[in-house]
Simulated scan of single mutants.
Amino acid sequence: MTGSNGEKHPFLDDLADDAELRGTVLRRPVSGRDNIKRLVEAVGTLYASQTPTFYGAIDQRHFLQYKATLRTSLDLEAVGVIERDEAGLVRRVTMTFLPLDAALSLSAGLGGIVGEEFGDDLFYDASVNEITAS
């Protein structure tokens, strides 16, 4: 996937069929290339703006950092660890989002967009006051 500025996305084009996405906005991992692409696409619709701040690699492990502002006006920071195999395929992506209010807002927003598709129990439900362990 190429961004609007012509830069290649750091991992979407290279996802293995059985790749796994983990993150602080998800209650459990999401597996599969198409599922991960759909989820990343949904995240993008919740951003008012996004600014990359760092991208680098050590061996097969790549690191991505960016700042974003959600459409809810909350500022968000993200750190991604992209793990590749010897062939260069992405096997696992782990995303951490902060601060907590922005991460919960992002998770709830994702639930509103793709909750039925992925299962409502995957995302934070803002209408429930307690956070339960899965």
Rank of each mutant, 00 (worst) to 15 (best):
E116P: 03
A68W: 04
L74G: 11
V43H: 15
D75K: 15
V81K: 03
D17P: 13
P29W: 07
I36Y: 08
L122M: 09
S49C: 11
D120Q: 14
R38Y: 01
R33Y: 02
K67E: 15
S134Q: 12
A126I: 14
L64V: 04
D13S: 06
E86Q: 14
K8T: 06
Y55E: 14
L21H: 08
E77K: 12
A103H: 05
L39K: 08
G32D: 12
R22Y: 04
E83W: 00
A126N: 05
H9P: 07
T69F: 12
V79Q: 02
N5R: 11
L106S: 01
Y66M: 13
G80V: 01
S49P: 09
T45R: 14
L74I: 04
M95L: 15
S73Y: 06
S134W: 11
D34S: 11
E117G: 00
A87K: 15
T94I: 10
K67W: 05
T51N: 08
D120E: 13
D13E: 13
R28D: 05
L110S: 07
V114C: 09
I113Q: 13
T2Q: 13
D101T: 13
L64M: 07
D120Y: 07
T45P: 02
I58W: 08
D34V: 08
A16W: 01
Y66L: 02
S73T: 15
A108Y: 01
R71K: 15
R84W: 07
G80K: 11
P52G: 07
N129P: 09
N5A: 12
A48T: 10
L46Y: 09
S73W: 14
D13L: 07
M1V: 06
P52N: 09
N35P: 06
K37E: 09
F11Q: 03
A133G: 12
G112T: 07
L98D: 00
R92P: 01
I131H: 06
R33D: 05
D85S: 08
G6R: 06
V79P: 00
Y124T: 00
A16V: 01
L39Y: 09
D120K: 13
D14T: 14
Y55N: 10
R71V: 11
L74E: 07
L74Q: 14
S49T: 15
T72G: 01
P52F: 02
R27V: 00
G111D: 10
I82C: 10
V30A: 03
L106T: 02
L104G: 08
E116A: 02
A57E: 09
F54W: 08
L74S: 15
I36D: 09
G3P: 02
V79Y: 07
A57C: 14
L76W: 00
E86P: 08
V81G: 00
D125G: 03
S73P: 02
L64T: 02
L76K: 06
L110G: 05
S73H: 13
I131G: 09
E86D: 13
L100Q: 10
V93C: 07
R84D: 12
P10Y: 10
R33A: 02
L12W: 02
